[in-house]
Design a binder for these strands. Structure first.
Length: 450
RNA sequence: GGCCCCAUCGUCUAACGGUUAGGACGAAGCCUUCUCAAGGCUUAAAUCGGAGUUCGAUUCUCCGUGGGGUCACCA
C-alpha cells in the first residue's frame, strides 16, 4: 500500500448462521482500525456456498451490526460477483496457473471435474500485523481446488478476487484463517494485478475449556443476538469484546466506541486466545447501565413490567427505578426479579408469614408486635406529605436503637415487603406512602397476635 | 499425525533486561442503619519446565511440555 492510498478493510462473514461473538470482535477491530486511519470498511457477505447460505442469516448479521452500532461504508453480496470470479478463473487457466482436473467422485454431488490451482510449491513468508513473521511451505498444500466449475468458485478464489477488485488493503481476520493465508497469497500472486494486502490474524475467543467457541458446543451464548435478547447494552458488548485480546496499556477499561477508535492500537493486540468471561461482561453492562439517564432506565423497566406483570403505575415505577437499577446487571434481570417476587410488593400487599416477621436473632413474636405497634403510632402522627425514607428513619431511629435495631427494623421491613431480603424499611416506607405503610403494619400486627 | 500459532494470578491483562511482578473481573473478609443490593477498605492469588546469553531475565535464544488452530468440491 502506498502512503497516499486509502485503506480499505472488510469484514467477510458467510451467512450460514447468526453473527458469532468472535465475528463481531473481528468486525470491531477492522472497524476501529479503518476508522482511526480514515479508511473504508466494507461488509462483504460471502455467500458463494449457495447450499448453506441463507437470506435470513444475512439479514440477521446486518441487524446485529445495526444493534451494535457499527456502520459499514458498504454492504456487498459476494454472489453478485460470480461473473467477475469466472473471468479470473478463466484467466488463471489461460495463464497456466490453474487447470481443469478430472476427479474421482467420492460423494454424491461431487463434480467429476474441478478446477485446481497449480501450486508452484514454494515458501511463502509474510509479516502478520499481529503474529509477526510467519513462514509456510506451500508444497504441503498440493494443487488445491479453487472452483467446482467456472461458475462455482470456492472460498479461496472468490475471497482473493474480491479483495483484489474491491481494493482491499488490509485483511484482518480470525486466526483460523492463518493457515489459509499462504494459499491465498499464491492466488493473489498468480493474478498479479496488485501487491498483496497486509494481513493480521486475531487470536480466537475461547470457551472455558480453551477451545474455539462454537454454536454446536457452546450454545446461544456465542451469538450476538442472544445478548440483544437478554437485554445487554450494545456499548457494553462492544467495550467488553474490544478488551478481549486488546487493551490500551493504561488502567482504564471503560471506553465508548469513539474512544476505542482513538485509543485502539493494533500492535497491542494479544497473540494468545482469550477465554470469554461472562462475569466481566456482566460487570461492563452494569457500568453502562449506571451511565444511562434515569428516564431511559425507567422507560425500560416500565416496558418490562407491563409486558411481564401488567403493573403500570408511573408514580411507583418512578420511585422504584433506582432500587431496581441497583439490583440488576442486564435488563432481563428485571424479569428475573419479578419471577422471584422481588417487585410485586411495591404494587400490592404481600402475603405475610408470621414466623418470618419475627427477628430470628433474638426476637419474640410479642416483641415484634409491640415494636410494630410503637412504630405505627409514631407514623400515625406524621404528615402524609412528608412521609419519606429520610423522615421515617428520623422518626423511629431512636426507638430502634432503644429496642434493638433488629427487633424493630426487621419486623417492619418484613411486614412491608413480605420478604426476607428486600430494600431497607425506610425506602419501603417512602415508596409505599403513609396510608399503605400503616395498613401493612396493622395487618402484620393482627397476624402476630392471632 | 503434518504444518502453523501461542504460553504472567481462576479469568482478561500491565511490565517492551533492573518493579515489593501492577490493574480489572471473580472469590474471601471487614465497614457502612435489621436482611438484600449498591458503595468503601483489605486479603488471597501468577511469570509452564530446563538449558543458555547477560552483572541481571516475565522480557532475548534454543530445547522440552502444555494448549489452540488448520489440514473440504465450507467459509
Amino acid at each position: 500500500m502506498k502512503n497516499n492510498e486509502q485503506m480499505v478493510l472488510r469484514f467477510a462473514p458467510s451467512p450460514t448462521g447468526f453473527l458469532h461473538i468472535g465475528g463481531a470482535r473481528t468486525a470491531l477491530f477492522n472497524y476501529l482500525y479503518a476508522r482511526q486511519n480514515k479508511g473504508k470498511i466494507i461488509l462483504r457477505i460471502e455467500d458463494t456456498d449457495l447450499e448453506r447460505s441463507k437470506k435470513e442469516y444475512t439479514e440477521g448479521i446486518v441487524k446485529a451490526f445495526e444493534w451494535l452500532g457499527l456502520k459499514f461504508d458498504d454492504t456487498l453480496l459476494q454472489s453478485d460477483y460470480f461473473s467477475v470470479h469466472r473471468k479470473y478463473i478463466e484467466k488463471l487457466i489461460e495463464n497456466g496457473h490453474a487447470y481443469v482436473s478430472k476427479e474421482e467422485v467420492k460423494e454424491e454431488g461431487q463434480r467429476a471435474e474441478v478446477i485446481r490451482f497449480k501450486n508452484p510449491n514454494k515458501k511463502i513468508a509474510f509479516n502478520d500485523l499481529i503474529k509477526g513473521d510467519v513462514v509456510f511451505d506451500t508444497t504441503d498444500l498440493g494443487d488445491f481446488i479453487i472452483a467446482k466449475s467456472l461458475d462455482e468458485p470456492i472460498f479461496h478464489l472468490s475471497n482473493v478476487v474480491d479483495d483484489i477488485t474491491m481494493g482491499i488493503t488490509h485483511v484482518i481476520r480470525a486466526e483460523e484463517h492463518l493457515s489459509n493465508t499462504p494459499r491465498q497469497i499464491l492466488i493473489w500472486e498468480a493474478i498479479g494485478e496488485k501487491p498483496r494486502p497486509v494481513y493480521g490474524h486475531m487470536p480466537l475467543i475461547l470457551s472455558e475449556t480453551r477451545e474455539k467457541l462454537s454454536k454446536r458446543k457452546h450454545g446461544e451464548m456465542v451469538s450476538v443476538e442472544y445478548y440483544e435478547k437478554m437485554g445487554y447494552l450494545p456499548e457494553a458488548m462492544l467495550n467488553f469484546i474490544a478488551f478481549l485480546g486488546w487493551n490500551p496499556g493504561t488502567e482504564e477499561e471503560v471506553f465508548s466506541l469513539d474512544e476505542l477508535i482513538e485509543k485502539f492500537d493494533i500492535s497491542k493486540v494479544q497473540k494468545a486466545g482469550a477465554i470469554f468471561n461472562p462475569q466481566k461482561l456482566l460487570w461492563y453492562n452494569k457500568e453502562y447501565l449506571k451511565k444511562l439517564p434515569i428516564e431511559k432506565v425507567q422507560e425500560e423497566i416500565t416496558n418490562r413490567l407491563i409486558k411481564n406483570s401488567g403493573y403500570q403505575n408511573d408514580e411507583i415505577i418512578k420511585k422504584i427505578t433506582p432500587i431496581i437499577l441497583e439490583r440488576i446487571n442486564v435488563w432481563s434481570d428485571v424479569d428475573q426479579m419479578l419471577k422471584d417476587g422481588d417487585i410485586q410488593y411495591f404494587f400490592e400487599k404481600p402475603i405475610l408469614d408470621k414466623e418470618m416477621i419475627v427477628w430470628k436473632k433474638g426476637g419474640t413474636t410479642q416483641e415484634a408486635a409491640e415494636n410494630l405497634k410503637l412504630v405505627s403510632e409514631i407514623f400515625e402522627k406524621m404528615d402524609e406529605s412528608n412521609f419519606s425514607s429520610e423522615s421515617t428513619k428520623e422518626a423511629i431511629w431512636k426507638i430502634a436503637e432503644e429496642k434493638g435495631k433488629g427487633n424493630v427494623l426487621w419486623p417492619l421491613r418484613v411486614s412491608l415487603s413480605g420478604k426476607e431480603k428486600s430494600p431497607d424499611p425506610f425506602t419501603l416506607c417512602g415508596t409505599l406512602g403513609k396510608a399503605e405503610t400503616l395498613s401493612r403494619i396493622s395487618i402484620a400486627i393482627e397476624l402476630l397476635l392471632k
